[in-house]
Structures are given as structure tokens and as C-alpha cells.
Nucleic acid binder design. Structure first.
Lengths: 215, 215
DNA sequence: TTTGAATCTGAGAAAACTCACAGAAGATTC
DNA sequence: GAATCTTCTGTGAGTTTTCTCAGATTCAAA
């Protein structure tokens, strides 16, 4: 684990209390040395580390065959940063300031899965499976459990047509009997929540087939 | 797809509901014949098929250059069977009894994996089975569900003549009675949409036989 | 060239599909 | 135990899709 000054010490305390055994290092060079000398389950790294660029350290870690999931912390919320972060080998990305609870949840998710980007994005809609939260342009949307499950499935398959029976089976585990309009109702609920002020719905109807998210 | 009796019919129903268009055949010989006469995305095969050994049929399919992923179903859980199954050219292996959800997941995984070429192209016409989209020179065409199903089948078998009964069975699942005009109507619908500004239709009529896409 | 069968296509009826709304039933919270 | 939220069902309107029918056209064989 590496970070600067007070934030670093704060994180050491927070993660310790959550049951982790963190090691704090001062800069990228030290991080590399430590990571090569011992196994770590997870690497938490601030992009704004002293001396070197965080993305470079990330690449160097990957180049030296260190496969532990890397969670990047950054103050920036720029798309290009996100892209560069992920391209350089990071597994997830967290923008400061953040809630400790979210940090811990993401750490656990990374440890559980080993890897993978945690948030799904379509247009200005963002879904965070770990936190079970959906936001549009930063403002949170309140969804019920079923609405959330449906949206998550749609977003995981953004651009792809999901048939009515696929959706029913996945979200409701139904014996599909073809006369069910629960799905229609929930699509309508979702649209009411995610499409306010949009000219076209993010959820497109493919008549006779099913629905498609985006595109 | 091939299997015996009730299990076969059950699988036909389950996969239909999940959005597939299954064809059930009685034995290995019929499977071979059908697979050679038209393209299939995936072959589901019970090792315990009538008459011949399932592994043999698998080899014959591969020998006759059929590359569709093969998913083998078997009652046995023996390692040597698994090895023989995979050696004979199967791509995956599922032991009975199994959950339908798992079967569908494995089918989707095989389709995803084998999807080296995701889009079908004939002339300037492009069809993307995953996205369920058809475009001509980049502009999208709006097709109804039946129109799409028909076009997809034609494009998957581009250059091959598809008989009227094959088309009717695949798209409509009809008891073909020889007097049916629905096919003609839909061919006409398709031509209207995909042939605008073309001197010759992409869909050729093979009088007395059926239709052929391109070439 | 004629003839009969096959194919094409326009029109319209029937069926299917989607959506919106209202409200019942069930779960949860206070 | 009342109020609220969530889930699901039922209904009907509006629209699209599907299919049938019938007449026109094309094709190939005689």
C-alpha cells in the first residue's frame, strides 16, 4: 500500500480496523521493492504519488509479474485518466473524496473476484454493483430491488438485445408463459427514473424480441 | 441438436424459450445430414444417442468440416469419458442431471467464445447476431422479428440454396403443407428493405427449390 | 407462342405486442 | 396496527406485425 502523508496514515488505520494488514510505503520505488519481495493480496495506490507518475508504477508492477489486484485512488474524474489507469493494469478506480465504506467494499470485491472493473456505465448512467447504487450525472437514483436487478442485467449487456424470456428468467426466474407483463411494467418504472429530461429512452424496445440498453 | 425422446423435447422447449431456434433430430446420421445442409451455431448432443456412439458422431462432424461448437451431454462423470469427449472434438461437456440455467450459460459461453467473426456480411449488408442489428453501408435497417430471423438464416447460409421447406421450418416451425405463401411475402418484405437502389436483388430465387443469398 | 405452375406483391383483416394506468396483495417501517 | 413502499395482476387503447387472399407477373416447358 502506498500513499502520501496523512491520507496514507488514515487509510492504514481504516483498513486495519476492517481486518486488513496494510503496509504503507513512501513512494513508487519502495512499492516495487516491497511487492517483489513479498506477496500482497491487493495494492492500493494513489495516482498522485511522490516522484513518479502512478500509471508508470502500475505498469512497472505488471511488467515485473505482480498480479495482485490494483486499486487506484485519484482526485481526477477524467475519462482519459480512467482509461489510462485501466490500461496501465489497474483493476479498479476510486475518485477522491470517497466513503471508507465504499473503499472497503471495493477492496473486498477485488479480493473476491481477483479482478474486474466494478462500475457499469452507459451514457451518463452509472451503476455500481458493489455498492448497489445507481447514479446519473453524479446524483443518486433510488431504485427498488427488482428495478435494480433489471437495470444491472441490462447494463451488463449494454448494446445487446435481451429477449423477454431471458429477462424474465434472469430477474424473475419465471416459468415463462408469454402472457406476463411484469417485465413491461418494470421497464416502464425504470424509464421513468432514468430517462427524465432525455429525448430518447436509454432502453430501446425491440418489438417482438425484447429490450436493449443504449445504442 | 440431437437427443432421445422426452429429454430432447424438453430441451427443445427450454432452449426455445431462451431465444434459441433448436432443431431436434433422432440419431447421428440425421444430425450429420442436417449439419451439412445448413449452418448451425451450436450442436447439443447426447453421448447416449441411438445406434452409434456419440464420440464417433462428433468425430464425423469434425471430419466433415463442421466447426460449430459441440456441447456433449452425458450421464457419466468418468474422467476418461470427459477426455474422450474433448478429444473427439467436443468443446464442452455437461453431466446429467443438470440445471437448465447451467446448460444455457454454457451454451452462451460457447457461442461467445467461438464468436471470432461476430458479424455476417454479404455485399454491403451487415448483420450482427449479438446486437441483433442489420445495417447497410452503416445505416441501420429496421426489421421486424420475422424479417430478421429470415434474413439471419439466409445470411448464415450465404451462397447456399435453402429450400422452401427448410426456410419455413426454421423460421416458422411449420408443418409444411406446400401451399404456404407466407415465405414469399416475407422475401418480398426483405427485398423491399435491403435492395433499395440495387440493380439486382441480393436474394436470388431458385425457382422450384427455394432461395439463395448472394453469389 | 402458348400454357400452366410458381412466384411476387398490394390490400386488408386478424392477431400480437407494448404501454400506461389503476389498484390489490404483500412486505416493511414506524 | 397504520402508513408506506414494493411487487405484481388486470384491463384497454393504440400500434405494429403477421398472415391470408387474390390478381398480376414471371418463367420454363411443350
Amino acid at each position: 500500500m502506498e500513499d502520501d502523508g496523512s491520507v496514507g496514515r488514515f487509510l492504514v488505520q481504516a483498513t486495519s480496523e476492517a481486518g486488513f494488514s496494510p503496509r504503507l510505503v513512501a513512494d513508487g520505488a519502495e512499492a516495487l521493492r516491497l511487492a517483489q519481495s513479498a506477496h500482497f493480496d491487493l495494492i492500493l495506490m494513489d495516482v498522485m504519488v511522490p516522484t513518479v507518475n502512478g500509471f508508470q508504477i502500475c505498469r512497472q508492477l505488471r511488467d515485473s509479474k505482480i498480479r495482485a489486484p490494483i486499486l487506484m485512488l485519484t482526485a481526477k474524474d477524467l475519462v482519459e485518466d480512467k482509461v489510462e489507469g485501466l490500461d496501465s493494469g489497474a483493476d479498479d478506480y476510486l475518485v477522491k473524496p470517497f466513503q471508507v465504506a465504499e473503499l472497503l467494499a471495493r477492496m473486498r470485491a477485488l479480493l473476491r473476484r481477483g479482478a474486474g472493473v466494478t462500475t457499469l456505465t452507459v451514457d451518463d448512467l452509472e451503476l455500481d454493483p458493489v455498492m448497489h447504487q445507481v447514479s446519473r450525472n453524479g446524483t443518486r437514483l433510488e431504485l427498488s430491488a427488482t428495478e435494480y436487478a433489471l437495470l444491472e442485467y441490462l447494463m451488463k449487456n449494454a448494446g445487446r438485445v435481451l429477449t423477454r424470456s431471458m429477462l424474465l428468467q434472469h430477474v424473475w426466474r419465471y416459468d415463462f408463459d408469454g402472457s406476463d407483463n411484469v417485465l413491461d411494467v418494470y421497464i416502464s418504472y425504470l424509464r421513468k427514473k432514468i430517462d427524465v429530461g432525455r429525448s430518447k429512452s436509454l432502453i430501446k424496445t425491440e418489438r417482438g424480441v425484447g429490450y436493449r440498453m443504449g445504442y
